[in-house]
Each structure stands twice: as structure tokens, then as C-alpha cells.
Design a protein around this nucleic acid. Structure first.
Lengths: 228, 228
DNA sequence: CGCTACTGTGACGTTTGCGTGACATCCCCG
DNA sequence: CGGGGATGTCACGCAAACGTCACAGTAGCG
């Protein structure tokens, strides 16, 4: 899970250290030496997380966090405070301002990464998890099981997501592009023909119970899941 | 009797205080500062109990409780309200919304723990302390013993909690993240792959009685305890 | 009836996720 | 303080899953 992280830190040495570790962990790192430059970057790039130094020149980290809160950003963007001392008072203050967590310097890279992961995890959206049933074909996102007239159906992860999407949007024709967006995620680049192959694999898995007929091809347009 | 408790409280100081006491009492604590984040956590982790602040930013505790009731959650998950004043009116309102108990701030840790114990006992007699049995694999939380077809099974503490959680939530697929939340508690920061290793150790311990086949891998999703 | 554009299908090389053993560290108890 | 169990992390290897291609098959149209 690569994330875009904005590091607001005036000390170049620490800045570099943090950035290096984050990049090692696969994150995309944006750096801002001051609160002012940070504000611009936030508006422009909407990072997934902000690492905010407790002490900043001009405007203190705590004031900056308050400002972010007023602007409505902290609701969307988690903030982790970096503080030099581990005093309880600082912790409480930091959390009061809307920070989601805090880390005391010096910190280990592992701890920082772990906390970042944990904070991001809390914000991650989730998909609907209700059972879907179409013409005897049943899919349960919770148990991750698919049955055709009661008999178990074996599917790979991608086939599962593909079927889930089709079943939650039946009758409607989906272009290959749309399917790539919804099933693969719009950040990935894969050939459109890849969809064909997965449709094929899905159909094959549904063959034993004749449910493969539900997956219909609409020439020149895409695919559709019929309800009958 | 360890239980998973979700604390919905926006005040960090009180949040910390409650969490500390609950962990002392052996509970696993999940924290949410707002109603929104709480909703996500509830769906993800299905806590055994919810401690709900009366006053919350954005949505009041009472509204949130109503929402939970409409979603059908309060039938399964007990709710204890935290209210600042002990006025009779609040109590009535709170209980009307489906809360199972209420505690007035400030409260003593002892009182809170007692009420938690009472609510869990009253509301969910089968949940925490009862024996669990799945396909000849029996786990007794009270004696802390596990047997496969009568033969004793040796487990470490973590493996025991892991198996207990899986057995009390069978069939359902749990992501590594969810397992970390439930079995480890979200205050610890460990790698997700650690779950794999403990699954491995659990399987090895269950091998002699062939019960290791119950612990199934769902590629790209997580793990599941099959009932067959 | 034949041409063309589009889709089905099998095969193949690559990637990714998971299982597994080994190792370092921590913590408890003697 | 030292020894042993429990735990977290790492590295390696394998197998499932994936994406892509080539070619066969089919539908639609003039």
C-alpha cells in the first residue's frame, strides 16, 4: 500500500532521514521545510498523510495542526506529530489538535512505518459486504465464498472481484475500460484484452452449474450480467 | 474473560484513561475519535462491546446509537453510554435508544469494569467464556485448554487467542489487518506477515488431529476457519 | 457469400502472494 | 543472571494467479 506522505520538517538532516526511510518503505514523499510551503503542497497534492514536526520556524506545529483542522483538512488527511520529548502533556495537546498519532524523536524507522500503516489503515474505505444472489448464483463477500445452486465455485481473487462487481451491477453493460476501473482499480495500466481473458476464466469456473450463460457479451460495447 | 471493546470518545485524555484501564483488565481496545471512524471499525472488527460517549463532535452519541439500532447492530453488540451528568432524563433517553447501560463521568475504573463485566455476562452469555466446538476441535476459554477429538493440543498464548477468535467467528474471512486488531490489539505495531507465521504455528499444532485443514487460506484476502 | 472487425481460447513467461525454516530478541521464571 | 519458551522478523522457494500474445472462431454487414 504505497501512500503519498507530506513531511513538514525544517531540519534538513532529519528531513532526509525520514524521507529516505519512507521511500524505502515504498511511499511517495513530499517535503516542506515550513508551514507556508506545506499549505501549498497540501492543496495541490492532497497527500494521504502528513508528518508534522512539533517545532517549526514561524508557526509551531501545533498551531499549524489547528489551522488544518479549521480548514477541514484533518478530517480527510491523518496527521502524525513528531515531538522531541515524550511528555504526557505534549501528547495530549497534540492529540487534542486533531493529530491521529504522535511519535517522539528519536524514533526507529520501524516504529514510524508501523504507525503510518496503522493510521492509514483506519481511514481506508471498505466495500459493501452484503450477500448477492442472482438466479441461484450466490456470492458472499464476508465469507468470500461463491456457490452455484449450493455447489461451491472456485474463483481467483480477480475473478471474484469481477463477479462481485457484475452481480452488484446486473443487466447494465460495462465497457472494458469501466471494468478495469472498478475491478482492477484505475491506477493500474493493463491491456483491455486482459478483461476478455478473465471473463473467460470466470465463465469456465461457472460452467459446472451452467451459470456461465449469465455472463453475456455485448459486441462492440462490453459485458453484462443477465439476471436470467 | 478478554473482550474486544470499541471506545468511541473524542477527548484524547479520557480516551487514554479508559483504554489504559481496559487493557489492565485484559481487554483488547479499539479506539475511535468520531462516529464516522467508529462505523468503519464496527463493520470491520465486530467488537464485543461499545463504549459510546454521550457527546460527540458532528453526531451525538444518542443519534449514533439510534443509527446502530437501525442497522441491526445493537442486537448483537451491547452499548454502554458515557454521559457527563447523571440526570434521570439522560438515562431514560439513553436506554430508550438501545444502550444496555450507562456510566456517568467522572467514573472509577472499578465501576466501569464491573459494568462491562455485567453487561457482557447478561447480554452475551455465549460469547466470551463459553466453550467453543468446531468439527471435533474444542476450545475452553475458562480452563485455557484445547482438544482435538479429545486429545490435548498444545498452544502458545498468541496461538490460543488466534484460534479462539477464529472459532468464535468461523466461516468469515479475516484480513491480516483484522486479525492484528482482534488478536494483538491495535495498540501494538507488528508486521502483517507476522500473522502468517502464527497461522503456521497454529496449523502445526493442529496437525496431529488433522484439524489444520480447518484453517484455510483465501488468497489475496486473508484467513478463514471452515466449519467442515 | 465473402470480407472485416471483434471476441474466444489456449499457451507461455512473469509477477505476486504465501508457506516455511531459521534467527534474533524479549521476557519470564528459577 | 542465565536458560528456555514465546514472539517478531527475515530470506528463500514454490505455486497460484496474472497479463499478454497468437491464432482460431464468430458475428455483422455490404
Amino acid at each position: 500500500m504505497p501512500a503519498t506522505v507530506l513531511v513538514v520538517e525544517d531540519e534538513p538532516a532529519i528531513q532526509e532521514l525520514i524521507a529516505f526511510n519512507l521511500r524505502q518503505a515504498g511511499h511517495i514523499v513530499l517535503a516542506a521545510p515550513s508551514a507556508e510551503s506545506a499549505q501549498h503542497l497540501i492543496k495541490e497534492t492532497l497527500p494521504d498523510l502528513i508528518l508534522l514536526d512539533w517545532m517549526l520556524p514561524g508557526m509551531s506545529g501545533i498551531d499549524f495542526a489547528k489551522k488544518l483542522k479549521n480548514d477541514g483538512y484533518t478530517k480527510a488527511i491523518p496527521v502524525i506529530m513528531l515531538t522531541a520529548r515524550g511528555e504526557e502533556q505534549d501528547k495530549v495537546k497534540g492529540l487534542e489538535t486533531g493529530a491521529d498519532d504522535y511519535v517522539t524523536k528519536p524514533f526507529s524507522p520501524r516504529e514510524l512505518n508501523a504507525r503510518i500503516k496503522a493510521v492509514l489503515r483506519r481511514r481506508a474505505p471498505q466495500m459493501t459486504d452484503e450477500m448477492v444472489d442472482v438466479a441461484g448464483l450466490a456470492l458472499d463477500p464476508v465469507t468470500h465464498r461463491v456457490t452455484g445452486n449450493g455447489a461451491p465455485v472456485e474463483l481467483g481473487p480477480t475473478e471474484f472481484r469481477l463477479l462481485h462487481f457484475l452481480m452488484t451491477h446486473p443487466e447494465r453493460v460495462h465497457s472494458r475500460t469501466q471494468l478495469l476501473d472498478h475491478v482492477w482499480g484505475n491506477q493500474v495500466f493493463v491491456e483491455e484484452r486482459t478483461v476478455d481473458v478473465h471473463i473467460r476464466r470466470l465463465r469456465r469456473a461457472l460452467e459446472p452449474t451452467r451459470h456461465d450463460a449469465l455472463v453475456q457479451t455485448v459486441r462492440g460495447a462490453g459485458y453484462r450480467l443477465s439476471q436470467r
